[in-house]
């Protein structure tokens, strides 16, 4: 019985390992056709299946249409200039004899969209979250800090789809009035994402700040330091690693967030020229296209999923194993 129980628990634990490897391998094998087809140029190529593009965008997309064979079968080694020439040649060919055109998929737009929305979210949420954390940890009286702290933690538990709906119908109109541009845009998506990660970021930053021993603060006060000086010179340096870890963890969350962004980013495969332009992110590309996609298109979505998985794996490992471990 003892043996059975032990084996059982070992099996469950190993399942985690198997799952993680399984996710990676499954994504990889599903992405394989796209990886073979587009190689690493996938990351720098801004063109995605034109049908999606045509909905909202017009001429440019048509010019780009079918500029086939970027990195066709492993000629990734060939320098960029050669690539361009090749492209033009083949495009001419394609245009003349209207034979089988290949649809190509490039991941640049969603990758850029993911990074930019995350960046905007971070720029917006970081100062406010720090302010909230300082308020909760150092300024507010205990009972207020407790109540507000719980409120913040509960808000962090609200399903992200609700942030998305609120953003689209109530927040975006105001932003687009203020800054011009579309209601669905990089800016509004980034800001709503920022509002969404705000409670999470504030709560874990507060937890990091709370690890500063009270005596350390007291000894600074005992030297005549003001509250600001204690926060700046003692608490921040002391909990620096933990705070950075918390921020990166929030960033990891923002990178992979789907629903808060899906309502607002516009979901078009176009590189944004301005911050008020619509575009798309990796999770949203997956959310909105998985159903319809098949063949190479579906594989390209898996390629995107793999990229997202690797990025967030790296970001989360960095936060957890470098910063947060060190903070303990």
């Amino acid at each position: 019985m003892e043996k059975i129980f032990q084996k059982l628990s070992l099996t469950s634990a190993t399942l985690v390992f198997v799952l993680l490897i399984g996710i990676f391998l499954t994504l990889y094998s599903a992405a394989k056709p796209a990886i073979d087809e587009f190689g690493f140029d996938f990351i720098t190529n801004p063109d995605w299946n034109k049908e999606v593009v045509l909905e909202n965008l017009d001429d440019e997309a048509i010019i780009d249409e079918d500029d086939v064979a970027i990195a066709d079968e492993d000629d990734a080694e060939i320098a960029d200039e050669d690539d361009v020439i090749l492209d033009e040649d083949e495009m001419l060919l394609d245009d003349e004899d209207e034979t089988a055109t290949k649809t190509i998929y490039g991941g640049l737009v969603p990758i850029v969209g993911t990074l930019l929305t995350t960046l905007i979210a971070l720029a917006f949420a970081l100062p406010i979250a720090m302010g909230i954390a300082v308020f909760l940890a150092e300024i507010a009286p205990k009972n207020i800090s407790y109540v507000v702290g719980i409120a913040i933690e509960l808000l962090a538990a609200i399903p992200s789809i609700i942030f998305g709906m609120w953003g689209l119908y109530y927040f975006a109109p105001i932003i687009s009035d203020l800054f011009g541009g579309y209601q669905v845009s990089l800016l509004t998506a980034g800001l709503v994402l920022g509002v969404m990660i705000l409670p999470f970021m504030a709560a874990i930053t507060r937890d990091s700040m709370n690890t500063t021993p009270a005596v350390l603060k007291e000894s600074a006060y005992a030297l005549g330091a003001t509250k600001f000086e204690v926060i700046k010179d003692i608490i921040f340096p002391y909990s620096k690693v933990g705070i950075i870890g918390s921020i990166i963890l929030a960033l990891g969350r923002a990178l992979g967030e789907t629903m808060a962004v899906a309502f607002l980013i516009g979901s078009v495969f176009v590189l944004p020229q301005k911050i008020t332009d619509p575009t798309i992110s990796i999770p949203v590309a997956m959310a909105n296209n998985f159903g319809e996609a098949s063949g190479l298109g579906e594989s390209a979505l898996f390629y995107l999923a793999l990229i997202l998985f690797i990025i967030s794996f790296a970001v989360i490992s960095l936060a957890k194993f470098y910063f947060l471990k060190k903070a303990k």
Binding site: V16, L20, G22, K320
Partner: peptide
């Protein structure tokens, strides 16, 4: 091994949920 599993589980906890969806889709 135990701490490896602990770390991996920690990472999985923050993995993008849409990626989990894609995994189950393929699986």
């Amino acid at each position: 091994y135990a701490s490896l599993i602990r770390d991996l589980s920690d990472i999985m906890m923050s993995a993008p949920s849409i990626v989990i969806g894609a995994f189950v889709y393929a699986l």
